[in-house]
Amino acid sequence: MGAPGRAAKAARNTARVRGKGFGSGPASHPTTVGTVLNGALMVLLALVTIFPFYYVVLIALSDYATVHKQILYIFPTKINFESFRAVFEERTFLNSFLNSVFVTVVGTAYSLLISSMAAYALSKDRVPGHRILFIIAIIPMFFSGGLIPYYLTVSAVGLSNSIWVMVIPAAITTFYLLLMKNSFDDVPKSLEESAKIDGATDFTVFFRIVLPTSMPVIATMALFYAVDKWNDYYLAMLFINDLNKYPLQMTLREILNNFTRFQGTGIGAVIQNQQTPIVYTRSLQMAVIVVATVPILCVYPFLQKHFTKGIMLGAVKE
């Protein structure tokens, strides 16, 4: 290879190296077969990722005939909002939505407060018995007390049929507690010591030094807790009998169950003179998925910037 060839190769290599940096202009991205293949692969991956969501929305907006008259259904040929109407017209929908918002907001705040305080205490060697407390905190990750004792305990403290049952007994998730503890372990001791020298108490150190410097993990845990609480239906299923106290997930499940039974073939499915609205069951299922998912999806963008950093915190212990 001659000198011009070497120079051209060097220039290409330089362009490649430059091209790896963020913000490099289009001129530094020569189109190669690899780039095209890479782009195609990325587009394909994006399609594979996005298509299920697209299909959910597509079916949610379709009626039975539209879907079943076509073997492959990719593009909407007729938009039908009956499924969403069936969901939104449910008498308890708004109430249950507000219940879920309450449980998610209050429950997340409560869980974060309790979990972070507990994690901070467990991260301090000077707390008497912290190792034993740590082991006690970990045990529920592997062993459960059993459903009946749990039910009896929660009932005995008067939480049955109360919306607080979704907030108080579920205040701490041990795994999240561990992540927080590991993160707090990494806060330099010198920071706390200097604050102490300036007269700060443990609470001052925790609220004014440790928490602000741990925002990534706090934001990540907030997202985890919020998603958990938004999706939770099990505690409500066990303890709540009053429809007005149902979270959204329970109400959506009820809507789906009722329509499936009325329009399916289960025993007693037909009650004459009831005339339920004609809604395509699969469309209703998809509408329920959309309604259940979209509100919590809206939280992600606000916490995304903390998320990647937060989840890595505490992962490596040096």
Partner: peptide
């Protein structure tokens, strides 16, 4: 009751 589900679909198709 068994025919009901079919009848609902019949109306649509």
């Amino acid at each position: 009751g068994g025919l009901y589900g079919m009848r609902v679909k019949f109306d649509q198709l």
